[in-house]
Design a protein around this nucleic acid. Structure first.
Lengths: 345, 345
DNA sequence: GATGGTAAGGTAAACGTTTACCTAAAAAAC
DNA sequence: GTTTTTTAGGTAAACGTTTACCTTACCATC
């Protein structure tokens, strides 16, 4: 009898002695349509029965559900997982529900998810690392509520949330410059991404003299790409060298290879990654990285959607920050050259 | 006109010259209710219009949606994120859609999500790290399709997918034993979890002589707990010592503290974690850890749900494996004592 | 006292499915 | 040649909401 959660609006109406229309209006806070005492009776009945409107009924009537989908390109990347977590919390605060999907950067899978989410009358779709695909083009043309995060839409102007990748790339270049490293190498993953392209562009624009030794590989994971390419992109000579890794995962792989080759990081080779995975402070004190503000993505996404639903085309640029880690030797036999962490010995 | 994705069953019926009932039956593959030529006409019409049944209509009629919710206790833990990714892929293959939520181990939030998911007519709810809460108890009593992963239900018998935590704890103890470490310390997080309790129990049962030096802390993150407690749980004396950390995150924090104290890992202090985060091979070669088979969770969850929907109470125990990493000195100045990785120098 | 406005609430339609039930023809069984 | 069964398909109800429209009462204004 109480709060089993399966009550319908009709049962609430019966119990409160009103029509279902009145119940609906009270629950939705429509002003001036119910007297104070009536509203109280309705609320009491709803509480007693544990009533909560069935979303299928709502969605059918309103041609719109409370679902928002997050289509991520690669959930194995902790950075994307962290963004997903932030978005979920922010959506929940708005009474929205997040559907999570991993497109694995495959156009077919992305299309399948897009179609599925349209069938679910999703109120919005976040593309966290979009890839060009037929249905994406079509839905963007149809005016669907799409929001692109990190990578811009391959189909032209659309809502966007992310950092200024070009500037971030430039910042990395400036950092190498300040450290006296004239010709750092670059290791990147797939080039499908506007983000990657912008970062490299900004980097090269600031270090124009640097003969670019770009490399990538066919390996399945970013870590493996980093491992495979690390030695190939090192500048010749014996001075201090550097590598710009387009993701932290690549940097992890590169680091492993460099260590195995007897090189010290960051003393012999300065490694700079991208994303600054939340765990880096603990497990990669040798890695400098461009930190993206994970916790900022959720609120930014919500704000961007509100803008989209007003018919605008939002563009939210979040601040990034290059976190320079001087690197702590993980073997105490070798004195550390410096510290960046917040923990005292 | 073509494939804009918003067609309804009525439009398909009109185009194919049949009734909507026939369209529905053809789309759902109900045998012996439509002739071959009729079916072909329906399929052609559906293809031409890009028709896909609206899930709100389906859910309303069938009193059940294609949504499955994953309520995770802490998405900041990469292990949970990896499990979520695996579950998502497996559900998708069944034509199901995953809703992801982070309960932050808070009963109120978990209850809110449970209510929301019931309102969404979710076909099933995965609790990845459940915590006791009023609505959980009620829904389990009502016979909702709940599946507990990692932590068992606090309300007694229910479907479960996870590893044998007691045995895993015992394996860790045996490992310390084999390494000649008689009295390792233990650092754990909140005790709300049956998993944590089982691991410690199995551990202590196998190392009964070990005066248990358990410790935990009020810190917000597991890493910080590890950092705060590492030195407190070390056995006195100067032999080789060890710490069993109930999660990899705790181990990261402990490692940092030990290094700062001038101790070598794993030479001076053997650290064993739990979960074996997918990144450990790359960033924590000094950490031995109990690996849970991330990729196995998705298929296991699907299989468990099928069992639940048949009215059974499944119990799927996945295999674990203690990954012993001999630890590679991350500073090449100090020769490595051994290697566990698959990469050659 | 007629007129008009507004607050309060009821009636019923509509959203897009699936499916129980019905009908008609064809095939099979006798 | 009658009866029964099977196949192929249509009709309409039902799922639970929200909301356009209608009605009634009340109050204010002239």
């Amino acid at each position: 009898m109480s709060a089993d959660g399966t009550a319908t609006i009709a049962e609430v109406a019966a119990r409160a002695g009103v029509s279902i229309a009145t119940v609906s209006r009270v629950m939705n806070g429509i002003a001036k349509r119910a007297g104070a005492d009536t509203a109280e009776r309705v609320w009491a009945a709803a509480r007693a029965l544990g009533y909560r409107p069935t979303s299928a009924g709502q969605a059918l009537r309103q041609k719109q559900s409370r679902l928002v989908a997050l289509l991520a390109a690669n959930l194995a990347n902790p950075a994307m997982a962290a963004i997903a977590a932030s978005v979920e919390a922010a959506l929940r605060e708005q009474g929205l529900v997040m559907v999570l999907a991993d497109t694995h950067d495959e156009p077919d899978l992305q299309d399948e998810y897009l179609a599925e989410m349209r069938a679910h009358l999703a109120r919005g779709i976040v593309l966290l690392g979009a890839i060009a695909s037929p249905r994406l083009r079509q839905m963007q043309a149809d005016g669907a509520s799409l929001l692109f995060v990190n990578r811009r839409s391959p189909e032209g102007a659309a809502g966007f949330v992310g950092i200024d990748n070009r500037r971030a790339g430039a910042d990395v270049a400036a950092f190498f410059n300040a450290q006296g490293i004239a010709s750092p190498g670059i290791i990147h993953g797939a080039r499908t991404s506007s983000a990657t392209a912008d970062r490299i562009e900004g980097f090269l624009a600031t270090l124009p003299r640097a003969k670019p030794r770009l490399a990538t590989g066919p390996a399945a994971t970013h870590q493996q790409i980093g491992y495979d390419c690390a030695l190939n992109v090192l500048a010749p000579g014996k001075g201090r060298r550097g590598i710009f890794c387009l993701s932290d995962l690549i940097a992890y792989g590169a680091h492993r290879r460099l260590i195995e080759a007897g090189l010290r990081v960051p003393e012999d080779v300065l490694l700079v990654g991208f994303d600054d995975n939340p765990m880096n402070d603990w497990v990669a004190p040798w890695l400098s990285s461009v930190r993206v503000p994970y916790d900022g993505f959720g609120p930014a996404v919500v704000s961007a959607f509100q803008s989209i639903w007003r018919g605008e085309r939002p563009e939210i640029i979040l601040p990034h920050r290059l976190v320079a880690r001087c690197g702590q030797a993980l073997d105490p036999a070798t004195p550390a050259t410096g510290r960046s962490g917040q923990h005292s010995p």
